[in-house]
Amino acid sequence: MELLRVEHLTRRYGQGAAQVTALDDVSFSVEKGEFVAIMGPSGSGKSTLLHLLGGVDRPTAGRVLVQGTDLYAMDETALAIFRRRQIGLVYQFYNLIPVLNVRENLTLPLLLDGRRVDRSLLDRLTDTLGLADRLNHLPDQLSGGQQQRVSIGRALIASPALMLADEPTGNLDSRNSAEIMALLRRFHEEKGQTLLVITHDERIARQADRLITIEDGRITRDEAVRP
């Protein structure tokens, strides 16, 4: 089942002579339940791609369809609602809200939808994330690895169709990186979570099902990592 389709996606910044093409006519599709790693040197356009997939930027040309819904055919309000229900985003620098505690940060996407938080869902999630005894802490009382686990939980709490991670281990030491990757793999394997991870780290890319390499805004390789 096709979950994500990207058609001729192009993003240019600036005007005239100063114009930069960050993403140049990129097309690919992702099946439901796939774990795709995206690699490329700095400035290759991979973060631009992820922002466009996550609906947080607007393309110069091209379309992004998540389960058949064209992200950029929607108005801002509909896109914002779609994003919080269908897309989970994890960033390198966590982007937690500093004045909210762990429980509030985790459940933010549900609270924005005006939902009550299911107790058992939250318990299971915090158990898996190893955050059960940290629920009342503020982000700055947590280690980097713990903060990243909160942001993974926040990305997953609304059971999104697609989870996107931009260098999720870029700011962590090797032990915490391994733990974060183990968590992501676990959600991928147990829940069939579709996962797109941008990374510099080949060891992380090798854990994916499929590896897409981007250079100068174009896809240069797209290969299966594991048969």
């Binding site: 389960q67 058949g68 819904t69 929607m74 309000t77 509909a78 896109l79 609602i81 779609f82 229900r85 939808d113 005006g114 939902r115 059971s159």
Partner: peptide, 20 residues
Amino acid sequence: LDIRDNREGELSLLKNDLHK
């Protein structure tokens, strides 16, 4: 069918959940 719409409100949430 894709019965989801991206609006605020309980009915939209219900559709979203039913779809999932």
